[in-house]
Simulated assay, not measured.
Amino acid sequence: MDTDNPEKPEFASYRSYWDFAKRVRFQQRYVWDEHVKAFIATVLATLKDRDVLLRRGTVFFRAQRGIEYVRFRKHDPDEPSGYSAARMKPRPNRATEGRANASGVSVLYLGSTLQTVISEVRPWVGADISVAQLKLKRRLKVVDLSRGHGRSAFGSIPLGHFLQGTPLTLEQKEAAVWIDIDNGFSQPVTLSDDTADYVPTQILAEVFKNAGYDGIVYKSQFGEKGYNIALFNPDDANVINCAPYRVEGFEVSFDQIGNRWFVPKRTRSSKAKRKMAGSRRKAGK
C-alpha cells in the first residue's frame, strides 16, 4: 500500500505526513496529485475526537513588539502605553507568512498565557512589548493539534517493525502521522525560516477551514502550559485592553541532540615521526 486510503481510513505509512510535505514543498504546491489528495482526505477522515469548542467570552492574549508613548493630559509627560486596538489585529490583506497562513491571508494568532505570547514574538532582554487581551465574540469550533506535541513519531513505532519488518497496525500509523502533524504546527517561526517550510501546515490549515472549523489550537514551544490559537477570521475576537511590558530576562533550557565528537589524540609514535620528518627537512637544506 503506497497511497493513503480515506475510505478505510488508513495512512499508507507512518511517514505519510513527511511524504505529503515533500511533495507540496518541492514538487506540486497548488495542483495536487493523487497522493496529496488521498492524504488530505485521510486526514479529514481521521479527525475524530479532535473537536474543541471555545466558549464565547473566553479571553486570550496577543503580543506585538514595541509600544507607544502617549500624553493623557496636556501638561503631563508622555507615558508608555500598549498599541491601539487596530494595531493589535492583523492588517487585512497584508499579513506576513505564518504556520497557518500564506502571505496576505490574515489569521489571528493568540495565546493562552502572557509568557506564551511574549515568547512567541522572539524579544530580546530590554525589549518593549504590547500585550492585548482579546475576547471571543461567539462560540468557536477548533481543531486540537496539541496531543502529539513533543513526542516522536519515530519513537512511537515498535522496534519489531524495523528489525523484523513486523507490519504496523492501522492505529499505529495513524498515531504516528498525527504526532507529525501536531509537531509541524508547533515548530517556532523565525524570520530566517525558508517559507517553503510553512507550506504543508498552511495547506492543512486551509483544509480545516474549508471543513468548517474556525481555527486550530496547538502547543507552544515556550512553557509547558501555554497554547497557541490561530483563528481563521480575525473578527471573531475583539481587543478589550492593551498594556506595555518590558522583557527583564530569559530562562534558557536545552537538550543535546547529537553525539559529541572528539579531536583524535596524538600518539607518541606520531609525534616521533613528525620530529624525524622535521629533522630530515633541515638536513636536506
Rank of each mutant, 00 (worst) to 15 (best):
M1N: 13
N5D: 15
P6K: 06
P6L: 07
K8G: 07
F11G: 06
Y14N: 09
Y17N: 04
Y17E: 08
Y17V: 03
W18L: 11
D19E: 14
A21N: 04
F26C: 09
Q27C: 09
Q28N: 15
R29S: 13
W32P: 05
W32D: 07
D33T: 05
E34S: 15
K37L: 13
K37Y: 04
F39W: 07
T42H: 06
D49H: 11
R50I: 05
L54S: 08
T58S: 15
F60Q: 07
F61M: 05
Q64P: 00
Q64D: 03
G66W: 01
G66N: 05
R71C: 14
R73V: 15
K74P: 01
H75G: 14
D76I: 07
D78Q: 12
E79T: 13
Y83K: 14
A86V: 12
A86F: 10
R87L: 12
K89T: 14
K89W: 03
R91T: 15
N93S: 13
G98L: 07
A102Q: 07
S106H: 07
S106V: 04
L108R: 02
S112A: 05
L114D: 08
E120P: 01
E120I: 02
E120H: 09
A127D: 14
A132C: 12
Q133L: 10
R138A: 12
R138K: 15
L140G: 04
K141L: 13
V142W: 02
D144T: 01
L145C: 10
L145T: 06
R147E: 14
R147F: 12
F154D: 09
S156R: 06
I157F: 05
P158H: 04
P158Y: 10
P158W: 09
L163C: 06
Q164T: 11
T169C: 03
L170W: 09
Q172T: 12
K173Y: 00
K173T: 02
E174P: 02
E174M: 11
E174F: 02
A176Y: 04
V177K: 05
V177C: 08
V177T: 08
D180L: 03
D180K: 01
D180T: 10
S186E: 03
T190Y: 06
S192D: 12
D194C: 06
D197K: 04
D197G: 06
T201F: 02
I203L: 10
F208Q: 07
K209Y: 02
G212L: 03
Y213H: 04
Y213T: 03
K219M: 01
Q221C: 10
Q221T: 14
K225M: 05
K225I: 09
L231T: 09
L231H: 00
F232W: 02
A237G: 07
F250H: 05
V252I: 13
D255A: 13
Q256Y: 13
Q256S: 12
Q256D: 14
I257P: 09
G258C: 12
W261F: 12
F262W: 13
P264I: 11
P264K: 11
R266I: 15
K273T: 15
K275F: 07
A277Q: 12
G278C: 05
S279I: 11
A283E: 13
A283K: 15
G284L: 14
